[in-house]
């Protein structure tokens, strides 16, 4: 999605009614975020909307990017927000070998998730990727952690449900996500 670097477009203030709608949408998409919503999207603080290329709207609070949305696709957290509150999102993990492909903007492929270093829902219960044994559906937003790393490297919409991934063990898993070091990551909002 953001392979190239770009400059921010026009910035506007989000009206409080729209701000409420965004809060509701965020909670609906990420139920785990609810207890933290006042920290993440404080009611009294002004939310700004910055237009960025390819019809993406970026919501931010001053210089802090929070969420972005491509047209009517799901609203997706910026990775800096994910790094602060990783437990608010559904997560999977890729093996170490897949990291450099993700960081070069390639499509995340299923084998990176199904290999021994990868993690999908239903694994070891105590691990943060277990998701209570519940599979994740195609179209859902997932945060992608990496083997041996503390911070997530990618966030995006699943192309294939995790159940199907386990059966097929191949094919694209996430296209056009937002990864650390991409144009959105490097965007200067100051």
């Amino acid at each position: 999605m953001f392979k190239k670097e770009f400059s921010p477009g026009a910035k506007s203030k989000v009206k409080s009614s729209a701000q409420r709608a965004i809060r509701a949408k965020v909670i609906e998409t990420y139920p785990l975020i609810e207890p933290y919503i006042d920290e993440v999207l404080p009611k009294k603080e002004q939310l700004d909307l910055v237009k960025i290329p390819d019809r993406v709207s970026l919501y931010c609070n001053g210089g802090t990017p929070l969420f972005w949305q491509h047209m009517d696709d799901p609203i997706v957290p910026h990775l800096q927000l994910v790094h602060k509150y990783p437990w608010c999102f559904t997560r999977v993990r890729i093996d170490r070998g897949g990291i450099r492909f993700v960081l070069s903007g390639a499509t995340l492929m299923v084998p990176g998730l199904t290999s021994p270093g990868g993690r999908l829902p239903g694994g070891e219960e105590s691990e943060e990727w277990a998701n209570g044994g519940k599979e994740i559906e195609a179209g859902d937003v997932v945060v992608v952690d990496a083997e041996g790393k503390e911070n997530a490297c990618l966030v995006g919409v699943l192309k294939m449900g995790t159940k199907e991934m386990k059966e097929k063990k191949k094919g694209p898993a996430i296209e056009n996500g937002h990864y650390v070091g991409d144009g959105l990551w490097k965007l200067d909002l100051s």
């Binding site: 509150y85 041996g148 790393k149 911070n151």
Partner: peptide, 25 residues
């Protein structure tokens, strides 16, 4: 409240990534 405090993440002053990812730049 059993809210966890937000994690504080260090970002690399050179390449901006979390330092654990510097090796890929």
């Amino acid at each position: 409240t059993d809210l966890k405090p937000a994690r504080k993440v260090v970002y690399c002053g050179v390449c901006t990534l979390p330092p654990e990812y510097c090796e890929y730049g």
